[in-house]
């Protein structure tokens, strides 16, 4: 049902220590976003991309398809950054439009390229995490980082219930479609409303039943899960630290060069 979730359970990197993967993707993400350097972004995109596809065994086509999800937002908002409406033309391009110009500057174009590369690299970092680490493992990491128990508990339950609710909803959607419920826009809206309300009622009832079932099994506000331990290997830690230091030095050198 949720493609990313299914893929990450089959990933080759699934049994690598979760904390390692979390730290790697977060550090890279931070370096990438804070530096905004194009070269670093390309490097990050290549490294996380290869790791996810080669080591993780995610099909390349799937990966590319996933990368395109946020692109619509990217191109729309980039166009707002690039294109200015003004009375005076700027240096890169200017399209006259009445007494105004749709115009952009070279500096702006450079920003745009920088923004696109940083955003894509960051998305690849996010995908590295979400395509290799199941949510249950991420929750384990959050617990180790001392996120309040109530929040992780709520997250665990919500994660489980998302699938229950999604199954109910998709069953209703299929039966609606098979009865021509989406024949026209009018009926489609009616069906959507009916689906949403019945899913709501069903999920409230289910929540009650779930609580009863959990309480019968001594639920006291905390679901204790034995997490599988996959100790971090020294070689992996060494590689990650090496990569981060290299990235950091590269960024510092690039900044220093451009400031001269």
């Amino acid at each position: 049902m949720i493609v990313i979730d299914r893929l990450c359970y089959n990933s080759g990197l699934r049994y690598v220590n979760a904390m390692e993967k979390f730290v790697f993707s977060m550090l890279t993400l931070l370096l990438c976003v804070s530096s905004r350097s194009i070269i670093a972004a390309i490097l990050v995109l290549l490294v996380t991309g290869t790791l996810t596809v080669e080591k993780g065994g995610i099909p390349l086509l799937c990966y590319l398809k996933l990368i395109t999800i946020p692109l619509v937002f990217l191109f729309l908002s980039i166009s707002a950054v690039l294109i200015n409406i003004s009375r005076t033309p700027l240096d890169a391009f200017a399209i006259p439009f009445g007494s105004f110009y749709l115009t952009g500057s070279v500096q702006g174009l450079l920003w745009g390229v920088q923004l696109i590369s940083t955003a894509l690299a960051s998305v690849s970092c996010l995908y590295f995490l979400s395509l290799s680490t199941p949510v249950a493992d991420i929750l384990g990491v959050l617990k180790k980082l001392h996120v309040p128990g109530l929040i992780t508990e709520l997250m665990l339950l919500i994660y489980r219930y998302i699938f229950i609710t999604l199954r109910t909803a998709s069953a209703i959607l299929i039966s609606q479609s098979s009865r021509l419920g989406n024949k026209s826009l009018h009926t489609a809206r009616k069906s959507f409303v009916a689906m949403a309300s019945s899913v709501f009622v069903l999920s409230v009832r289910q929540a009650g039943a779930q609580y009863d079932a959990m309480e019968a099994r001594c639920y006291n506000g905390r679901i204790q899960i034995l997490s599988e331990e996959h100790p971090a290997k020294y070689s992996e830690i060494f590689c990650i630290a090496g990569f981060e230091v290299f990235l950091f030095v590269l960024i510092v050198i690039l900044k220093y060069k451009s400031s001269i």
Partner: peptide, 15 residues
């Protein structure tokens, strides 16, 4: 009891 209810509502909003 609200625990499961809250979680279910969160899942409902997500879906």
């Amino acid at each position: 009891r609200t625990m499961t209810l809250l979680a279910m509502s969160g899942a409902f909003i997500f879906v």
